[in-house]
């Protein structure tokens, strides 16, 4: 398959206008990119954990999906999707349906890293033929920017506010992609929205068309929660990748591969300084914060490179 943006954009969009995500929201961009990776002739059931995405894309009676869609709760999207996929197998076996369906589940980092982790782990272990897509915006944005286990250290979130005795979140970000890879599922990848969208498209296509449970972790910046200008999505994603804060890689049948290595690895401060949630790190006397953030990213990056062949 050779990727051609023009051809992909000629396909009918499966994510519809009129949804009520914020202006500049990274989640909407991620969702339309992932759904664009479906082959035109295939049907899909899109499923969703309670999240910004859910409350903005299916407000009764307005669904923003061309395909079937289901939401039931916050912490159960993976198990629910497993139920849909199981029904598909049974009904196909019984001759009640004849079309090809793909199952794509979206959750935010709250619904994926945290409250839905058990449900996701169970569904991955059981081997349902589905793709779980985490759109990671690094906090509980739907309830107002509370910290999650995906929130990076030092971030100013509303439950880890910066104060005279606090420098923001204490803990580092949970490495969920590695946790899901440890389930031994056939395909796991980390991606975000870059350039001509080749990276996210190819990974989404591979995840959708690999049999068995697959997982995509998509960094999906949130202008309100991260406090950057709403027109800056592309640059924020680019900096996350070029500073190695969000490395791009995939794990195919247990083999780790880097899919992108920045020619020049930029200092992490280039990424941090664009965002209000890290503003306190740049105050005089707080240089140690940037140093420690850099050190953490460097260690993770070296470990990842060592893991990748």
């Amino acid at each position: 398959m050779t990727y051609k943006l023009k051809e992909e954009l000629n396909k009918k969009e499966r994510f519809a206008q009129g949804h009520r995500l914020c202006a500049g929201c990274g989640a909407g961009v991620a969702v339309s990119a992932v759904l664009r990776a479906l082959d035109e002739e295939d049907k899909a059931v899109v499923s969703n954990a309670t999240s910004c995405l859910e409350v903005s894309t299916f407000i009764y009676p307005d669904t923003a999906y061309e395909d079937s869609y289901i939401h039931s709760a916050f912490e159960n999207a993976a198990a629910m999707t497993g139920g849909v996929e199981t029904a598909y197998r049974v009904l196909k076996k019984r001759g009640k349906i004849d079309e090809n369906f793909k199952f794509i589940c979206f959750g935010g980092d709250g619904g994926t890293y945290d409250i839905g982790l058990q449900s996701l782990s169970g569904a991955m272990e059981r081997g349902h033929d589905m793709v779980y897509v985490c759109y990671d915006n690094e906090a509980y944005m739907n309830t107002g920017i509370q910290r999650s286990s995906a929130t990076p250290r030092f971030a100013d979130a509303t439950t880890t506010p910066v104060g005279t005795k606090s420098y923001g979140k204490i803990q580092n970000k949970k490495d969920l992609t590695a946790i899901i890879a440890a389930h031994g599922v056939p395909y796991v990848a980390q991606t975000t929205m870059l350039g001509n969208f080749r990276d996210i498209h190819e990974k989404a296509h591979r995840a959708i068309y690999t049999e068995g449970p697959c997982f995509l972790n998509v960094l999906a910046p949130c202008p309100r929660g991260w406090r950057y200008g709403m027109d800056d999505l592309a640059e924020i994603c680019r900096l996350a990748v070029d500073t190695c804060v969000w490395p791009l890689y995939e794990v195919v049948n247990g083999k780790w591969h880097l899919t992108y290595e920045p020619r020049t690895k930029l200092p992490v401060s280039d990424f941090l300084e664009k965002q209000g949630r890290f503003a306190h790190m740049f105050r005089p006397g707080n240089e140690w914060m940037i140093d420690e953030a850099q050190q953490y990213v460097d260690e993770k990056w070296e470990n990842l490179k060592a893991r990748c062949e």
Partner: peptide, 8 residues
């Protein structure tokens, strides 16, 4: 819930 909504 998923299975029932799917038609099973």
């Amino acid at each position: 819930i998923g299975a029932s909504a799917a038609g099973a």
